[in-house]
Design a protein around this nucleic acid. Structure first.
Lengths: 198, 198
DNA sequence: TTATAACGTTACTCGATAGTAACATATTTT
DNA sequence: AAAATATGTTACTATCGAGTAACGTTATAA
């Protein structure tokens, strides 16, 4: 039991707990139906304590977004650095995107993306997502160029892909009947081959 | 200028206008950021007047759902009555689902489905959607049986399909750069053939 | 023409909750 | 040990908005 975590580390850990608990509550009851008192109670603290870690209620959404987009972009850096076909890149992206997006904080971010009341924050949030979408479009374009992906409208494909993947967040439960492996492989098969029968 | 609309007709028309205006506002600003005063103002009436047409704020969501699910189910009755392959049925469903779902009232329903505060209403809303999803799964199963659709997990496919289609509601604008025809054909090609290149 | 129901208004109540002020305690650092 | 800072509390303010009461006014029907 080492207690020798620095203050900054403990602080960070507590913030993480707040984000996780808040995300969970927002996903179950919705942002507006969840009060800061509710969230505080989940940590066994009182509401003003939260303000030591967050600027205001909206800031929780902003921080969930920072964490999630950070993870996705790191993953994309990694995936796009490999010297493989566009199709393989897309395949790797999907495979690695699913476990990232089925986390509570990520689900919370997806559900509330671009919905901040402060217009500047909302704008930034939308831009964050567009940036990620653009990177995926770049993958698709490479695939079309090298012939590994069918010639299609990369914008529409990217959007449809994100819609299905992000849609997972509203129904997929890691403890539910569908296993993550099966889910990933069904998604990949659908994206790859479509539905057409033999 | 015939003024001879029955009371019931005029009443229905006014309700429709309320639903359209409310849906639009809910989609732009969100449900909780839109007050009943805001909605009333859009009709040039005052808040209490709304209560002549709706039971309460939530009832707007319920009524949007009734209208939309009604339309979808009628369409499904129609599509499923035809004597064609499962694949063709799915194709027809998608083609006809897109124009239905890109209407403001339908978009409002999709975005708020299952989010009523009254648990009984929320439950019913979720059930309504499950019923529709089950009918589409039935189409998919028929397609798998007759060989026109690849053998796959019909549940996951139905969900992924609805995710992409319903996802349209959050970005597709009928006056935007993407034409409905192009959208429909890209969606169909993706669902049919997947992304794989030649 | 009068009675009744439909439709609308103004002016209020009442609860919820985000955010804050002021104060208490623990923990580091000097 | 004393000073400074981090972390927490209780008790409050202030606002917003859903829903309602009470009261006109218009249109239909007897």
């Amino acid at each position: 039991m080492q207690k020798s975590l620095s203050r900054a580390e403990k602080r960070q850990q507590k913030l993480d707990v707040i984000l996780r608990n808040a995300s969970k509550a927002f996903m179950e009851r919705g942002y507006y139906k969840t009060s800061l008192d509710d969230i505080a109670r989940m940590q066994n603290v009182t509401k003003p304590t939260l303000y030591y870690y967050i600027k205001n209620k909206e800031d929780i959404l902003v921080k969930c977004e920072e964490v999630t987009c950070g993870r996705i972009n790191e993953m994309l850096d990694d995936v796009m650095a490999e010297k493989v076909s566009g199709y393989d890149m897309l395949y790797n992206f999907i495979t690695r995107y699913i476990p990232i997006i089925t986390d509570d904080v990520a689900r919370c971010h997806v559900r509330h993306r671009g919905q901040m009341e402060d217009p500047a924050l909302a704008e930034k949030s939308i831009q964050n997502h567009k940036d990620i979408e653009n990177r995926v479009r770049e993958i698709i374009r490479r695939g079309i160029k090298d012939g590994s992906i069918r010639d299609c409208n990369s914008t529409i494909l990217a959007i449809l892909l994100f819609d299905s993947l992000n849609g997972l967040t509203s129904w997929y439960k890691s403890d539910g009947p569908v296993k993550e492996d099966e889910l990933t492989s069904e998604v990949l098969k659908l994206v790859t081959e479509g539905v057409t029968g033999s």
